[in-house]
Design a protein around this nucleic acid. Sequence first.
DNA 1: GCCGTTTTCGGCCCGACTGTTTTCAGTCG
Length: 557
Amino acid sequence: MTNREIAVVLDRIADILQVKGEDYYKIRAYRAAAHSVYRLDEDIKVLYKANRISDIPGVGKAIKAKIEELLEKGSCEYLDKLLQEVPPGVLEMLRIPGIGHKTVKTIYEETGIDNLDDLLKAAQLKQIRVLPGMGGKTEYNIKKGIEILRSSGGKVTRGLALPLAEELRDCLLESAAVEQASIVGSIRRGKSLVSDIDILAASDDSEKVYSIISAYPGIREIQQANGDNIKGKLNYGIDFEVIIVKPHEYYPSMVWTTGSKAHREVLFNNRKAEEFKGLESESEVYNKLGYEYIVPEMRENKGELEAAKNKQLPRLIAEKDIQGDLHMHSEWSDGAHSIRQMAEAAKKRAYSYIAITDHSKSLPISGGLNEERLAEQGKEIEALNASVKDVHIFKGIEVDILKDGSLDFSDEILEQLDIVVASIHSNFKLDREKQTERISRAIKNPHVDIIGHLSGRLLNRRNGYELDVDRILELAARNKTVLEINSHPDRLDIDEDTARKAREYGIKIAINSDAHQADDLKLMKYGVVNARRAWLESEDIINSWNKESIIDFFKKS
DNA sequence: GCCGTTTTCGGCCCGACTGTTTTCAGTCG
């Protein structure tokens, strides 16, 4: 089993314990262990062989035994026992926004309902409101929540799908029978939500490819397999498709299978991919069709074909252009690592600056900073800047935008900071006018440099709050307020459409990791892809500029 | 269930908002 699979099992145990109403700290212990395992740099199997499972933070005697059982047998008796008490469908109910473990427990125990379909029916039949502690609003939340869960149509985030796709691709590439393999389809185009994993493999031996796939441990089932096409489900229930082509068909097929359909149809204009076999790169395929090479993120038939024909394609921002990261947390609030550790991690990525932007006091669960601790932190940053070479640390804050649009710190405090990110973390349900006014007030504050995760959306979990986006973009442009592309794959906020629109308004963007630990800095790649899908260039992205330009920009704004 | 240079027990992030109540439990960040 992989690190990720072990982490999923531990998390699942925590879910069940929660529905069972077990001790909060026991549940938290399983969650913490799951998190540590998920974040391990090493393969857990290597740790196991070295008898070092106990070295994993948060893993003690009991959880160690379960991890070892999973590694030895691929299953865990404790989980199997728990699953008999609480069926998987009940756990799915936990994903409904506004419905927590207590509500799920009541529903399951009082009615026996153990899946989302039956729950939805019961809510429609007004059978939930009669249960203790529930009313019409709970029923409405259930109906609405299931609707949101279903609206993604079974899609998963790119953040979940990409690592799985890479593992499958790498497994194919290990075989001598596979000359080349690439992730294609919507994952390659960088869509935030994807419906399946598509892999293109170049091989003369499709039988061999089939045997590799059927032996691949990450696969749940193969549903269809003919000569050049294998379809099925990976663990976690994600659909996959492996398309096998002859080596000389590889590059035209890559263009074809990367899509999108709309892009492909215009591009090929009734010509067949077979006409282009033997070509040795995607560029050659594009050139032969009369276009400049178009990067996968742009292939949506949204103007890129015309631009490519006229040799007017933008030079999109790339991860190597990124020079720093302007939104991250440290152990001063809810981050896991010290400021020094964050700076060292940034140095490894060859960044020249970071901003430490811990939470402000209104977010007590995060250990948000009050004025005194912020001042102390400032001193630590000054000391670090004197000793840490190569990476400059900006003093920052992720200040809460309060319900009325005022900020969690006074202007006098904010004025002393280098980078002020202002974000919403509460009162998501204000009406459109109030929410727009709230953010507008924050934008107008002269000390606010960046608005963090503007819409508050969480992909597959929560829609963004009601906002008049045009009004906000106009105001941000006028105030020279930067908008963030939050790189967390569950957020990608602002989304690509808003980002493209923001550019038209002349708004500058910061692509930030919002890292809560050193390893999270790597999430930057998801934000960059989102920006590329919005056609953004280096000049649009302030953290692709050097330190001096950033200081200069915020001085003038 | 984990952790410990106050160590084998007792502590382990809290406070606001929402919805269902009529004084509070559940959810969320």
